[in-house]
């Protein structure tokens, strides 16, 4: 049945080359854990991506209940955590996933560093990877404020005070992120917008660049 639907579409639109381009390529022996178990270190990039997908999905579902408003933010989080079936699990996925992404990304960075995979011709991909790292940290920072509890509030106050110490542009930077005179309603709205629209948008663009470059240049050779 599925095969026939696929054939029907393929006959009209020739979609086979599209996914072949993406999916059909050889995994070199030195990165295949089936050949050398130590090659599992090459999995961390893919695992980072896998957890990122979980983050995007669970985040999408969380916004069904979350409200970025100082009156209702905490209440809506409390409601989805305690009243909604599986709400606690989905929020836990997003909560723990946020940390797991950083860990996986760090391990991936270590692997790239110690296998020397950042060297010519892959310098640009290293640069894009570092940008992804910054975007992820930004996602962590902005997401931390959203539950609008004491921990979230004071963590953000501290982060903004650190930003303020940047020479020359420090104060403007703080105002830009804070959105107002105090850490309050405007800050929460801003952090929410940055967390669910701006940074994920930037992240998807950077990930695309990261993956296209891997396909163009291939995985770096064995040590």
């Amino acid at each position: 049945m599925l095969q026939r639907i696929y054939d029907w579409v393929d006959e009209r639109m020739d979609i086979t080359p599209l996914w072949r381009d993406i999916a059909d390529h050889e995994v070199p022996e030195h990165v295949n854990p089936a050949h050398h178990f130590s090659a599992f270190i090459y999995c961390f990039g893919g695992l980072t991506f896998f957890v990122t997908v979980i983050q995007i999905l669970s985040g999408m579902f969380l916004t069904m209940y979350y409200v970025p408003d100082i009156i209702n933010a905490y209440e809506s989080v409390y409601y989805l955590q305690s009243e909604v079936a599986f709400g606690a699990i989905v929020r836990a996925m997003h909560h723990w996933g946020a940390s797991v992404v950083i860990v996986m990304m760090f391990l991936h960075t270590l692997r790239v560093f110690f296998t020397g995979a950042y060297k010519k011709p892959r310098e640009l991909n290293w640069v894009v990877g570092v940008l992804i790292f910054f975007v992820m940290l930004g996602l962590g920072l902005t997401g931390y404020l959203l539950p609008w509890d004491m921990k979230a509030y004071f963590a953000t106050v501290v982060a903004l005070e650190i930003m303020e110490t940047v020479p020359i542009i420090g104060e403007s930077l703080r105002t830009l992120l804070q959105g107002g005179e105090i850490v309050g309603a405007q800050t929460l709205a801003r952090f929410f917008a940055i967390h669910v629209f701006f940074l994920p948008g930037a992240l998807l663009g950077l990930l695309a660049a990261h993956f296209i470059m891997i396909r163009r240049q291939g995985i770096s050779g064995p040590l």
Binding site: I54, S58, M64, V84, A85, F86
Partner: peptide, 12 residues
């Protein structure tokens, strides 16, 4: 296993 909790939450 990944999607079930999310979908269950959405259709609650």
């Amino acid at each position: 296993g990944m999607l079930m909790p999310m979908v269950r939450m959405a259709v609650d």
